[in-house]
Amino acid sequence: MNAREKILGKIRSAQSNAALRTPTESINNHLAQHPRGPMPSAPENLLAQFKERALKLSSDVRGTSDKMEVPKLLAIYLSERKLPNSGVCWPSLAGLPWSAAGLDMQSRPAKNHDLIGVTGAFCAIAETGTLMMLSGADTPATTSLLPETHVSVLDPRRIVATMEDAWDLMRKEFKQPPRAVNFISGPSRTADIEQTVTLGAHGPYRVLLILAPL
């Protein structure tokens, strides 16, 4: 008998008391209906709540009503912080006027030495100020991970209230989760040394969210 049979067998014999076991029908119902647990009350203003929570998690937030202005906003942000002006972006953002703003953005997945990574986002969650990223051929996960600065261009219409809403949106637009769903809430951090929070552990040191209709 292999380990799988032994472990499952032990569990089965310990739960032979059928009264305690959930009928298969109820299990299948639970999976089909995936009911929600207790939820926070819906915010009056999704955008305002998202911004407030994102700032609390040490993300920076900028906004514009014209997506063509995004490169200019990024250029200002980078020069304010004396950061380099070249990096990589997702292919969906390659058409923005980067070079007109003095930026050199290559449309490819990030490599180790790339210092700026510009991504979109699948959606964002107001409850915690979080980005939801789905991996895929045109949405490489490394772009939000390897560079020291992560910039995400986000359509404010893609802000939902809770993670439950985000799952529903994913179910609506895709049949199943992609290889990696990453929820990102601010720059990477560690508090391992003396429980003192330090921004910039193994991932980005800073996260800039640019809200613009896409």
């Binding site: 998690l57 290889r179 929820f183 601010g186």
Partner: peptide, 24 residues
Amino acid sequence: ATGQSITNYVSVLTGNKNKEDHDG
């Protein structure tokens, strides 16, 4: 655990890399 509303990263990993994926 740490007094955070959410951790910086929550990763939900399903299956291995697709042919067209760059990473994973």
